[in-house]
Design a protein around this nucleic acid. Structure first.
Length: 531
DNA sequence: AAAGCTGACAACCGCCGTTGA
DNA sequence: ATCAACGGCGGTTGTCAGCTT
């Protein structure tokens, strides 16, 4: 193990005749004027030396270790070895479910701040967490699953958001791609999906296209909705295109967006665009300083590569069911019992086509407007009432998400318990199924159940709260015998709701996105306003 | 049994912020 | 004010073990 490198260590030197400079297998090291520093795996002898040194002198002053002990290791290496392996109270072994859960939550909040995350996990090192996360990323990326439970990702918004005052939409530079991919900032797709919808709302007053928009990732794994629907209008979707996942029915009728796009949309060269999420202030600074076009007009659509994978997979039937891992077992009959929605003043037909009825966005816009009206009369609720029975039966997605077997999980830390998934579900009634569900539906098969999404296997949904019901609409059934779990709730939604305007929605104080009007949504990217 | 794949782990590298001379 | 050393942090890479094909 250990990397053999000819690179010269940037700190610490060791005399060539150090008794430990060549002990055991030397994996190479730096040499500088007769000074050789060992690299590679540590031996027990080296460990002992380091431990003794720390016992005697305490931590810190790592470069002095080599000087005092003759240990042929640079200061950095000593520090790392101590921090990751030798220091007391280190917890070894696999992460517990609770730790995993916490890691996910922390990552959603902090991004790749491993050290900070480690501070919340006593006995765990940043390296451990990082390795775990990276492994998890690989696994989930392979599986085509979002990194976070959607509601969790929303829940995580505040911390990063609070650190930023500018829109969190990043321009299409490599950094963004890195963030999304290498750095594990692959945003929960539902977030993008949902935001993306909002991005296509120029018809809705109050949404400045200049806000929170950026042309985005040139990542092959970060697809632009615009790229598909606007940049190449009328273009038939290719089999491996992400959004072709929604290719059946009106959902996929991209041309609708052509009618709603703004000039800026047209004028900008959208090859892709993106919203890096969760927001990492550090990355944001870099990205924003790297010439992000603040005026580009769309939020990102993170149709990750898994969409392509999904596309290749069998599309769900209307009564899609899975068995085994990641089972969706829609049971429409019981959904009613979960959704007790206040009646809408102008209830939307279960599958009422929008006036244009030509596409997802228009449908969404239409319904958003309708909902906005409705909310004027019925603020303070959040509901998926527009997911009617017929709709449920039509596509099964809602059924999936709200089956009686549902073990929704509302994050105890979440004040609101809403999710983007719920939001999306709510605003996509005519679609019949949410992107979230689509995504889940297509990809849940490919990855084993993630226990980290479980807290205790018990439903934590407060069904007295409509948002909770909505927020629960992300269900991921576990592997055989495993606990089911739902997403965490989203506190961010509530925050957003509280901070969003009130142009079309009645109440910004209602739960989560129930209060988010279309007009409000840009505020999502004005997180500095969020308390 | 061998090859390939994947996960887990360990360690190094480079960047950056802090601190003290 | 400047600069160098130090330490922390995040990214990356290498190795090994276990599993699958």
């Amino acid at each position: 193990m250990g990397r053999s490198s000819t690179a010269e260590s940037d700190d610490g030197v060791l005399s060539a005749d150090s008794p430990l400079s060549n002990d055991g297998d030397n994996f190479g090291g730096s040499s500088n004027g007769g000074v050789v520093l060992k690299k590679g795996p540590w031996t027990s002898a080296e460990d002992s030396i380091l431990v003794e040194y720390v016992k005697k002198h305490g931590e810190g002053n790592w470069n002095a270790v080599q000087k005092h002990t003759g240990l042929a290791r640079c200061g950095k290496s000593c520090r790392l070895r101590w921090a990751n392996h030798l220091r007391p109270n280190l917890k070894k072994g696999a992460f517990t479910s609770e730790e995993e859960r916490l890691i996910i939550e922390l990552h959603a909040k902090m991004g790749n701040k491993w050290a900070r995350m480690a501070a919340h996990l006593p006995g765990r090192t940043d390296n451990e967490i990082k390795n775990y996360w990276n492994t998890r990323i690989k696994r989930r990326q392979r599986a085509g699953l979002p990194l976070y439970p959607p509601d969790l990702c929303l829940q995580s918004l505040p911390e990063n958001q609070q650190q930023l005052s500018s829109p969190r939409i990043y321009g299409g530079d490599k950094s963004c791609h890195d963030i999304l991919q290498s750095n594990g900032y692959r945003a929960p797709d539902i977030m993008f999906d949902s935001f993306n919808i909002l991005a296509y709302t120029p018809e809705i007053p109050g949404i400045p296209t200049s806000i929170s928009m950026g042309n985005g990732f040139a990542s092959p794994q970060s697809y632009s909705f615009v790229h598909q629907t606007m940049g190449m209008p009328e273009r038939a979707q290719e089999p491996d295109e992400p959004m072709s996942d929604y290719g059946s029915g009106a959902v996929n009728e991209a041309p609708a967006f052509n009618r709603t796009r703004t000039d800026s949309c047209v004028n900008k060269s959208f090859q892709s665009f993106g919203l890096c999420f969760p927001y990492d202030p550090d990355h944001t600074k870099k990205l924003l300083s790297s010439g992000v076009n603040q005026e580009t007009s769309f939020m990102s659509f993170s149709a990750s590569e898994h969409f392509a994978d999904a596309q290749k997979s069998e599309l769900p039937s209307l009564q899609y069911q899975e068995t085994g891992l990641g089972v969706w077992d829609p049971q429409p009959e019981s959904f009613d019992s979960l959704v007790q929605s206040p009646p809408l003043s102008g209830p939307l037909p279960s599958h009422c086509p929008s006036p244009g009825s030509s596409g997802l966005l228009e449908d969404l816009i239409y319904e958003a407007k309708s909902l906005g009206k409705s909310e004027n009369q019925s603020s303070g609720w959040a509901t998926s009432s527009n997911v009617s029975h017929g709709e449920i039966k039509a596509d099964g997605s809602a059924l999936r998400t709200c089956s009686p077997e549902f073990k929704g999980y509302i994050d105890p830390n979440s004040p609101s318990g809403n999710s983007m998934g719920s939001f999306f579900n709510r605003y996509t009634p005519t679609i019949g199924r949410s992107l979230e569900n689509d995504m889940t539906m297509h990809h849940v098969k490919s990855e084993a159940f993630d226990p980290s999404w479980i807290v205790d296997g018990e439903s934590k949904v407060d069904y007295s709260r409509p948002d909770a019901i909505l927020g629960s609409c992300w269900v991921k059934q576990g592997s055989p015998g495993s606990k089911q779990k739902g997403p965490t709730a989203d506190s961010t939604a509530a925050r957003l709701g509280d901070n969003l305007g009130t142009n079309t929605s009645a109440s910004a104080s209602t739960w989560g996105f129930s209060s988010c009007s279309w007009n409000n949504m840009p505020a999502v990217c004005q997180m500095s306003d969020i308390p």
